[in-house]
């Protein structure tokens, strides 16, 4: 790919435990294009979170490397939206959303400006001075998303950001994420175990194998943007893609249900 934004080259991660060596990632190579919404889907334990943490610089690979192409300006390489509750409970919504900019020493006026914009886009303006414990799960994840977008990174990394939410909230937040993403066209690597979510959000999907943490298949998602998550789900094309990816994944479930006896 000519304009690759992130390049994973033979990324390997091994753990040494008491009962021997575990391969979490067995030499993963792929590229994500600039402005691409890339989704990694796979069963739990397939190493997808490890892969994202390596890309985020939070873990070192045993071998191989991840490179992120730098644009102009002094933007941070990446910003991560974490799984679960990652907002600082001792900071207000505004302070949480401003955290990345503050740590980079951005001028106060710029922080107020950018954070204000993303609080508006996520409908959190009225809760700017609230503390996380006063918010619902969906609102907390909106703040996490605002925090990541506000620091304007080269790439956005999302680690199952909606997995703890109920069905309705998840759909709402998926739609909101797409709306904000459409304005910025950031390169996104999004991890999920939900096939539904992968097909709704992604431009391209990588199905991961639980066997030694390797990519199993790459699937292009043909839907145009901007998308409506709900309208999309009603189309026959959506059902077909969902079936294809599910078929790839079915073999990856560690404990397959036995076929009923004839």
């Amino acid at each position: 790919m000519a304009d690759a934004k992130i390049r994973f080259e033979q990324v390997e991660k091994r753990f040494f435990l008491r009962d021997g060596e575990h391969v979490a990632l067995g030499g993963v190579s792929f590229e994500v294009g600039s402005g691409e919404f890339f989704v990694i889907v796979g069963p739990s334990g397939c190493g997808k979170t490890t892969l994202l943490r390596i890309a985020a610089g939070l873990e070192a690979p045993t071998s191989g490397r991840v490179t992120i192409a730098r644009g102009d300006g002094d933007r941070p390489e990446n910003a991560m939206v974490f799984q679960g509750e990652s907002l600082f409970p001792w900071m207000t919504v505004r302070e949480n959303a401003a955290y990345g900019l503050r740590m980079r020493g951005a001028p106060r006026a710029q922080i107020d400006d950018v954070v204000g914009h993303y609080l508006d886009r996520t409908g959190l303006r009225a809760f700017a001075d609230a503390f996380p414990h006063q918010l619902s799960g969906g609102m907390k994840q909106r703040v996490s998303i605002a925090r990541a977008f506000a620091c304007d990174p080269e790439v956005l990394l999302m680690d199952e950001p909606f997995s703890a939410l109920d069905e309705q909230n998840r759909t709402l937040l998926q739609q909101e994420l797409l709306r904000i993403w459409d304005e910025t066209k950031k390169t996104v690597v999004f991890i999920t175990h939900s096939v539904d979510e992968a097909v709704s959000l992604g431009d391209r999907i990588m199905v991961m194998s639980s066997d030694r943490g390797r990519p199993k298949a790459f699937v292009d998602v043909p839907f145009t943007r901007p998308r409506s998550v709900l309208d999309l789900r009603a189309t026959p094309e959506y059902g077909r893609l969902f079936g294809d990816i599910w078929a790839e994944l079915r073999d990856e479930i560690r404990f397959p249900v036995p076929e009923p006896a004839a």
Binding site: M80, F82, G84, S86
Partner: peptide, 12 residues
Amino acid sequence: RMYFDVGRNYGA
């Protein structure tokens, strides 16, 4: 530990 990960990721 997650809060320290967040800090690191956001440049603290």
